[in-house]
């Protein structure tokens, strides 16, 4: 079976682990537990009549004390970059991480998940900012690890890109 490594990137506490947990185990908890190092999960996915094994590398969130080490990304077939709609600075971090990852790995499919759509009324990332990112080439999906909204769609979309579908 074909294996594809997908790395989850983003600032700390944006919900990377929660998204993986929702996608792989259909579970969610409100309790924040920071990730140190990397957690690896596996999920078999069907795409275009074939089964692929998705290896989800849930990497520690970057903050001022721990910078992302790009060697974790080696062999990655795609990136799911996560930001928190309630924290505008996490979008800046997402852009920075995308740039660093692509500079280390070369061209690679990626997309941005704006997580916490269940808290839409508290979002501080303005619609104009999202439009601007879309215009500059970002593919952006809104999701909520808490409710599950958009999660399956986000993972299916990036899987399709990794398995060679055009946009």
């Amino acid at each position: 079976m074909i294996q594809k490594k997908l790395c989850m990137l983003g600032a700390f506490a944006v919900g990377k682990t929660s998204l993986v947990r929702r996608y792989v185990h259909s579970m969610f908890t409100d309790k924040y537990l920071t990730t140190v190092g990397v957690k690896i999960d596996k999920k078999d996915v069907q795409h275009a009549g074939k089964t692929a094994s998705l290896l989800l590398w849930d990497l520690y969130g970057e903050d001022e004390f721990q910078r992302l080490q790009t060697s974790y990304l080696r062999g990655s077939a795609g990136l799911l970059i996560v930001a928190d709609g309630t924290r505008p600075a996490t979008v800046d971090k997402a852009i920075e991480l995308r740039d660093r990852a692509l500079s280390a790995l070369g061209p690679l499919p990626y997309l941005l998940i704006l997580n916490k759509s269940d808290l839409l009324s508290e979002w501080e990332v303005r619609p104009e900012r999202i439009d601007e990112l879309s215009r500059s080439g970002w593919e952006i999906l809104r999701a909520s690890a808490k409710t599950g909204e958009g999660v399956e769609d986000a993972f299916s979309t990036i899987t399709a890109r990794m398995l060679g579908d055009g946009r």
Binding site: Q3, K5, V36, G37, I40, K42, S71, Y72
Partner: peptide
């Protein structure tokens, strides 16, 4: 193919690789 955490790291060339805190 037998150890999923090695995906992407083998075959290995060049400098030694060190990843910390792999679950």
């Amino acid at each position: 193919a037998q150890i999923s955490l090695l995906t992407g790291f083998l075959p290995h060339h060049g400098e030694p690789l060190h990843l910390s805190a792999v679950h």
